[in-house]
Design a protein around this nucleic acid. Sequence first.
DNA 1: AAGATTAGCAACCGCATTGCA
DNA 2: ATGCAATGCGGTTGCTAATCT
Length: 261
Amino acid sequence: MGRAPCCPKVGLHRGPWSFKEDALLTRYIEEHGEGNWRNLPKMAGLLRCGKSCRLRWMNYLRPDIKRGNITPDEDDLIVRLHSLLGNRWSLIAGRLPGRTDNEIKNYWNSHLCKKLKNRDREASEAGRTPKLSPIGSNIPSIKVHHPKAIRVSPYSVMPRTESLDSLLCTSLSSSNQINKLGPSNINIDQNAVGGGVAGGFPGPSHGNDDRDGVFVPIEDWDSEEMKTLEELFEEYEKLQRPVEAGNVHQMESFVDSFLLI
DNA sequence: AAGATTAGCAACCGCATTGCA
DNA sequence: ATGCAATGCGGTTGCTAATCT
């Protein structure tokens, strides 16, 4: 016996959304807000599965969404975050305002993956080991890890710091989590996070696989790993500030840091 | 010009997690 | 404490357009 489907699919539309369906969904959500996805299609007059409505709204119709034209900076950040976080697309997307996990995942699979493979290949042909080591920082060459996908709360996986807070605000601003928690309530109990389901993080260098329920509590994180992540966010934050004359070189170094050393 | 192949991306699916009764 | 519905996530599929042969 398999799991029951999220809804009876009989008689429901599938495949690409029409302009009319988009309009119906947008209008309904503008009037009634997000949520109650299961009943939403019925209420909005849509012959779609609730899940499908949610996906459409989250990935394409939401007003705060940027689409296409991923900038070199965003591109760089995706590569760096991916090497630190693995395939945690929603976490990565949370650091890129206006971008969705689906877009980043697709972008990674179609562009970046290929780009990095080519780089690896070129490097091995040249007899060198590829490294992702930002110039001007002491970040060691980054280990790529591919943990099994797990659901993590963005506000519970990393210790709180000032720069992290600002990033959290960005990542939560478009979700209803911010409403539930309130920005001032986002606080992490360093002593408590280790025991909860999402309170730890499959450690990058600890044979990560959550199937045994083995999580590495944050307090057990390698301090270098923690520092690396923090430094990366700070570095990106700096780059997000208006590029002043003197900043141009910094920006170039950031980009250059992806070139093989 | 036509068929084959590849690239890009929207959408679907199954499972995990959360929240509530 | 438990069960269930709702929601969120990442992996995968499948369609379309672009490019190649």
